[in-house]
């Protein structure tokens, strides 16, 4: 059988599916192209200083640095806080729990991964900001730390299930060999399984980070909303601003017009590049792990 007899005719099925594929591809194309084209005006008027300007005041100056800083900061905080819990529970689930219990944990995590961002936002504003203020003795609880903590809780289920998958995918022979060499279960896990699964674990973390960095609502309600890099910069308990939160707050005002709109789209472009870097790194690592 040659190729031609496999698909002898370009019948209605071909045209129909081709049409929908064209719609899908076209939409995605338009999305990416407008993201670039619409951000041109602000680069024209501000030059590259848009990227490292520290001052943002609608109608006067557009500097994205505080937002870029804020996004990196909350995402970094989130990963530091989520790591021990996500990896710990992933290792426990994959190596020490029996099959049934494992399935229950996995199902629960998949459910929890779907909790909408607005629920976390509500919790952040009603409970967490007050809690952070009182526990750390701050004058106010709307800080980068609060946002990072909220994000850590939010991505915990995602990072945990993906890490668990990565650990499970380490072939059984490795475990058998390790055990036959007289290692204990824990030694086997830490010295053999985890190193073997490392690319997969890293991939899981990167994907979680991508989600954290793109989250709007939960962060917007607790971060403080001020477009400023804290003094000193490592002061976690100062308010700040992340890129999605900034866009969320200003989009309605600028909808579709003027340099301000272009500046917001350009912020979106910067965010996309950052998230894309994280997720493609994650996907690459995950695929290599398999």
């Amino acid at each position: 059988m040659n190729k031609h007899s496999l698909f002898p005719e370009r019948g209605p099925a071909f045209w129909w599916t081709g049409f929908t594929a064209l719609i899908a591809a076209g939409t995605i194309f338009i999305l990416f192209v407008s993201l670039v084209i619409e951000s041109v005006p602000v680069f024209k008027s501000q030059g590259l200083s848009f990227l490292w300007g520290a001052d943002w005041f609608a109608g006067e100056a557009y500097g994205a640095l505080p937002m870029i800083f804020g996004s990196l900061m909350v995402t970094g905080l989130a990963v530091v806080m989520v790591l021990p819990f996500a990896l710990g529970s992933a290792i426990l689930t994959s190596e020490f729990l029996n099959g049934r219990l494992r399935l229950v944990v996995k199902a629960a995590m998949e459910l929890l991964a779907g909790v909408p961002g607005i629920i976390y936002g509500l919790m952040g504003i009603a409970v967490l900001t007050v809690w952070v203020r009182d526990v750390f003795g701050l004058i106010d609880g709307n800080t980068l730390f609060t946002a990072g903590l909220l994000l850590a809780v939010m991505i915990l289920p995602t990072v945990m299930t993906l890490s668990e998958d990565a650990l499970r995918s380490v072939p059984g022979e490795f475990r058998d060999t390790a055990l036959s060499l007289g290692l204990t279960r824990m030694e086997m896990t830490l010295k053999v399984v985890v190193p073997q699964a490392l690319p997969g674990l890293a991939g899981a973390v990167f994907l979680g980070l991508g989600r954290a960095m793109g989250e709007t609502i939960a962060v917007m309600l607790v971060i403080g909303g001020i477009d400023r890099i804290p003094q000193p910069w490592f002061n976690l308990f100062a308010p700040g601003q992340s890129i999605p939160s900034k866009i969320g707050r200003e989009a309605a005002e600028a909808l579709g017009f003027d340099v301000q709109w272009s500046a917001l789209i350009a912020l979106g472009l910067v965010l996309f590049v950052m998230v894309m870097t994280l997720t493609s790194a994650g996907n690459l690592l995950l695929r290599r792990a398999r």
Binding site: I30, F32, L35, T216, G268
Partner: peptide
Amino acid sequence: YALNAVPTIIFGLIGYLF
């Protein structure tokens, strides 16, 4: 995959525009 990585707020921005 790239589309999956796009932060949701960007869908709002460009979606509104288009």
